[in-house]
Computed example of a mutant assay.
Amino acid sequence: MSTRAPDVLGDLDATGLSIPIVASRFNAEVVDVLVDGALERLVELGADPDACPVVRVPGAFELPVVVARLAARPDVDGVVALGAVVRGGTPHFDYVCQAATTGLEAVARDHDTPIGFGLLTTDTWEQATDRAGGAHGNKGREAAEAVVETVRVLHAA
């Protein structure tokens, strides 16, 4: 017999939630598929599409500042952040990925707001497309689902 308290679980009900999506324009061919997947999943989970506006930023580096502004709003329950950075021949990849990842993590912690992390950081274009509706699913859908579940966990905890 277990003496452990039951786990606190979040359900996947987005009804009544306000979850904007912040998406980079850079690598739009991949990011647009992530956006479509995130929006589709949020609506499947009961979200009103009007409560899930898509806000565009130039690239992944700009995601944290806009996500922070939205996360600070009292009417926002969570934010989905979407982008795609594909490794090139310079260290730029490392700087952008690190800044975006660290920035988004800080936003979630500092604003006590769930952030759905849908930033692809891949070595090749093929890896990116595999994660945007290809062989590895759609990471936009997964980020949307993660933010809804985390919002509900926080409501239940």
Rank of each mutant, 00 (worst) to 15 (best):
A99P: 03
E29Y: 10
V30P: 00
R25Q: 07
V35K: 13
A132Q: 07
G116S: 14
A60G: 08
A106E: 11
L39K: 10
R41G: 08
V80K: 14
L34Q: 03
R25G: 00
G59M: 14
H111K: 11
H136T: 13
D36W: 05
V22Q: 06
S18I: 00
R73S: 13
L119F: 00
E29R: 12
T101P: 08
D48G: 09
T121H: 02
L82M: 13
A60S: 15
E62R: 15
V80D: 04
D77R: 12
R131N: 09
A108M: 12
L120Q: 03
R87H: 02
A71I: 13
G140Q: 06
E40Q: 12
I115D: 08
D48L: 14
L70F: 05
V57C: 06
V22E: 00
G116A: 05
S18C: 13
V86F: 00
V65S: 09
E105G: 11
H111A: 12
L120V: 08
R25Y: 04
E40V: 06
A71Y: 08
E62H: 13
F93A: 11
T102Y: 03
R69T: 12
G140H: 04
V107L: 02
D94K: 14
L34G: 02
R56T: 04
L63C: 11
V80Q: 03
V30Q: 00
V57F: 08
V43C: 08
V55W: 04
R41A: 07
A38D: 06
G37F: 03
A51F: 02
L42P: 03
D77N: 15
C97G: 06
A68I: 02
V79C: 13
D94P: 05
A60N: 02
S24T: 15
R41I: 01
A106H: 09
A38S: 07
Y95A: 15
A132N: 07
D130Q: 15
E40T: 14
G134S: 02
G133Y: 00
F117G: 04
A81K: 06
G78V: 02
A99R: 10
I19N: 09
A81F: 04
L42W: 02
S24P: 03
D130I: 10
Q127D: 10
V35I: 12
R41V: 01
R131K: 05
D36S: 10
A144T: 05
C52V: 02
T124I: 08
L34C: 01
G116W: 01
D94S: 14
V22S: 04
R131D: 01
G103K: 15
G137P: 04
R109E: 12
G59W: 07
E40A: 13
G116N: 12
A81C: 06
G78R: 15
A28M: 03
Q98N: 14
R69I: 04
L119T: 01
D77C: 13
D123L: 15
A68P: 01
T121N: 09
T90Y: 06
V79F: 10
G133F: 01
I19D: 03
E142R: 15
V80G: 03
G133I: 11
P20H: 03
G88P: 09
W125G: 14
